[in-house]
């Protein structure tokens, strides 16, 4: 999967690129408006991660250019501008999703996967992980060919973990993914603990291996070994 990351802040860009490459994307970068415009004219991307405030232009214009060209690339806006209006303008212009800085890397990945899934594989895509098989379009989960019934939150949690295999997911990132960004930590940690406990129990009942590892004090990790 080929990504274009448009971000003017060098150190944030580097961290994001490192992360996205680890997550298995082919990632190209642009540090400014003109460079970005050039790249989207020359190459095809599956998804564009777009910062709105650029030194030599606005990300919204890049978004417009993409739409004018009839590009098939998904667009995820990341912006420091917390302004609600920008979010609405971005979504109106045809962006697929919007993340306000600062964000969790795992959240970025989960959203990217969702966008790419929606755009590229119409229902034929599945996620396989060890003895687990998930059909995201139908929201169906199978453990060793047996269907597994999950609650909405448990399913979201599992999908979030599956989007970031072998990575430590902080409890804050999980809580925000499940409850939105304004839930207070103390409450939401109870909350994710409960859901994780239930998810693990259900997986074990179907005889799945215990691959959700607890990272003490930090969070959880979907282990590949």
């Amino acid at each position: 999967m080929k990504l274009l990351l448009i971000e003017d802040e060098a150190s944030l860009r580097n961290t994001l690129v490192e992360y996205l490459r680890q997550a298995g994307y082919v990632c190209e970068v642009a540090g400014g408006y003109h460079q970005a415009l050039e790249k989207i004219k020359l190459y095809q991307y599956d998804c564009v991660v777009l910062d709105l405030t650029l030194p030599d232009g606005t990300g919204l214009d890049i978004l417009r250019a993409l739409k004018v060209d009839g590009s098939r690339a998904g667009v995820l806006i990341i912006s420091a501008r917390a302004a609600l209006d920008d979010r609405l303008t971005g979504l109106d212009l045809g962006a697929d999703d919007y993340l306000t800085k600062p964000f969790h890397l795992a959240e970025l990945n989960a959203r990217l996967r969702a966008i790419i899934r929606r755009r590229q594989f119409q229902g034929s895509h599945h996620i396989a992980f060890r003895d687990l098989l998930v059909w995201p379009e139908q929201a169906e989960v199978f453990v060793r060919e047996q269907p597994l019934v999950l609650t909405r939150k448990e399913y979201d949690l599992l999908l979030f973990l599956l989007a970031n295999p072998n990575r430590v997911l902080t409890k804050e990132a999980i809580a925000e993914h499940l409850c939105g960004d304004a839930v207070d930590s103390a409450d939401s940690f109870d909350f994710i603990y409960t859901h994780l406990k239930n998810l693990r129990k259900k997986l074990q009942e179907k005889g799945a291996d215990n691959y959700i590892r607890t990272m003490y004090g930090v969070g959880y990790k979907l282990s590949t070994e």
């Binding site: 802040e9 420091a80 890397l105």
Partner: peptide, 21 residues
């Protein structure tokens, strides 16, 4: 101030997340 603070915060958060890995 909002814009300028948000960016370093985003960098800190992303770097710390990478560090945790």
């Amino acid at each position: 101030a909002a814009h300028e603070t948000q960016t370093p915060l985003a960098i800190m958060q992303a770097q710390l997340e990478q560090l945790l890995q």
